[in-house]
Amino acid sequence: MAVNYNTEPLLKVTGLKQYFKVSHTFTVKAVDDVDFEIYPGETYGLVGESGSGKSTIGRSVIRLYDPTAGSIRFNGMDISGRMKASDQKALRTQMQMIFQDPMASLNPRKKVEDIIGEGLDIHHMCSSGAEKRERVRAILEKVGLAPEHASRYPHQFSGGQRQRVGIARALIMNPKLIIADECISALDVSIQAQVVNLMKDIQEETGTAYLFIAHDLSMVKYISDRIGVLHLGHLLETGTTDEIFAHPVHPYTKSLLSAIPAPNPALEKRRVAMSYDYKTSGIDYNAGTYHLLGGTHYVKCTDQEFAAWK
């Protein structure tokens, strides 16, 4: 997959902040000052532990939340503040989302063809019922389901098949960007590989970009072109997959990478994961700015830290 990095980025997020006000005195800063971009046809992986703000970023970008501050530019439109009706319509068709739990995100009382075709109905993209059925059938075939599956209900499918339905629902709008929020975490290992292969094939065919949110680092490494590492709402390090995995700079990234258990017993038995504790590390995420390490590899830290880690 050759991604053209010389074009305009498809999605450009600058200074994104997403705060949730819990009470008068307490505000959760779920996402704090995050910058990243996604190019057309690229897969950008967001990794981090639970509570680091990965899902919040995905949801802010697709405007399920109203961002507190910062700008989000998507395909030439500014989608961070109030949007024009035409921009809103464009956003709702060109950006789609695949959720984690396919059982919870598919309406149990609707047939698969209605679930998949709902977007077409809402945006009046089909002139006749026959055309809609034809498009649903084509998309089912693309995700590896049979045409007769169209008239079934979600509970009649296995987990992997349900996730294929979720992917079909996202794909039918011909999106430029798909936000995949932990879309393989709920599946079995052998089924995960099937879904990941499918996502890769679809990208090759349609050139859609992915924002791939996951905590399984080996899968993220496998599918992503570039990666962003999140911790406590801060994007600590971003770069191409090779840059991050071969030369991690930030201590948090290092500890995260060292924690991945490798399926290699002789090695794994003796290895002890590095530990990292934000409170005792003496690093203040708020004080950090982005420092360039070369290529697209950025790390968020202060000047002194940058000098020490490099």
Binding site: G160, V189, S190, A193, Q194, V196, N197, S218, M219, Y222
Partner: peptide, 19 residues
């Protein structure tokens, strides 16, 4: 099916079908 950190293959080997 589980990619290790050095997997460079274009596609993951999968077990077809489901349990």
């Amino acid at each position: 099916a589980m990619p290790d950190l050095d997997t460079a293959d274009e596609r993951l080997y999968t077990i077809p079908g489901s349990p």
